[in-house]
Design a protein around this nucleic acid. Sequence first.
DNA 1: TACCTATTGATAACAATTATCATTAACGGT
DNA 2: ACCGTTAATGATAATTGTTATCAATAGGTA
Lengths: 124, 124
Amino acid sequence: MQKTRTTNQRLKILEHLRNIRTHPNAEAVFKSVRKDLPVISLATVYRNLNMLASQGTILKLEINGEYKFDANTCGHQHAVCTNCGKIIDIFEPAITTYALKKLTLNGFKSGCVDIIFKGRCDKC
Amino acid sequence: MQKTRTTNQRLKILEHLRNIRTHPNAEAVFKSVRKDLPVISLATVYRNLNMLASQGTILKLEINGEYKFDANTCGHQHAVCTNCGKIIDIFEPAITTYALKKLTLNGFKSGCVDIIFKGRCDKC
DNA sequence: TACCTATTGATAACAATTATCATTAACGGT
DNA sequence: ACCGTTAATGATAATTGTTATCAATAGGTA
Ligand SMILES: [Mn+2]
Ligand SMILES: [Mn+2]
Ligand SMILES: [Zn+2]
Ligand SMILES: [Zn+2]
């Protein structure tokens, strides 16, 4: 078991995600964080986003053919516009609670659910 | 508005999806359908899967970094093993019904929800 | 301060999907 | 049954998002 080191790159990536309410992909995080840390590499962004997601610090969503990241890990949901791709947060914690409670599958123990609504946003 | 033609390739792809209970990606559908239709192209499989999904005939799920297809469009859920990637059908229609009912968002009208549980399967 | 090695930056490699285009075939009209 | 139109196809190039590689760097500990 290797111990993880605290790097400036990882801190800046997490800090950025916690300051926004959008759901950027790795490329977008890279472009934003690079303003503060001009030397950071895209590979480092990918590595840290994956690390943070695997330890549960952030969410890794699969939307529109790519991974989107979210620092809000509290049971909320997402709505995706099938026309323009816009992603909106839905705060109905009861849905997540209900889904996890209902799940009494044969041997399948789950602690989290991705709930993604598909439809048209108000602009489309 | 162009009218769609009924092709043997599209019929075979849909027929195959309706005969299985798994959630194959385009490549897997291609390999299976090619047994019946040796000359079919991978591009044709992609085109038809996307067409069938956009018209709501089949589901297009985003799991483990790729699109998976499902001919069962009735409101069920999916559980994905975070260790081996296995996908299991969960039949708890009440979850989908509850989620759609709870969704009373500003202008966002949705008719379908993708509900994906993440956890460990019985083998892992 | 010196050592160990986790992490990084740069870039190559990879995998999934989409775009392109000449050819084929579905189907409504004759 | 034969056309003519054009949606759809097969083959393959191009694109995109992500991961792998590896020498160099820097975090943590003594
Ligand atoms: Mn969110
Ligand atoms: Mn299914
Ligand atoms: Zn929209
Ligand atoms: Zn498993």
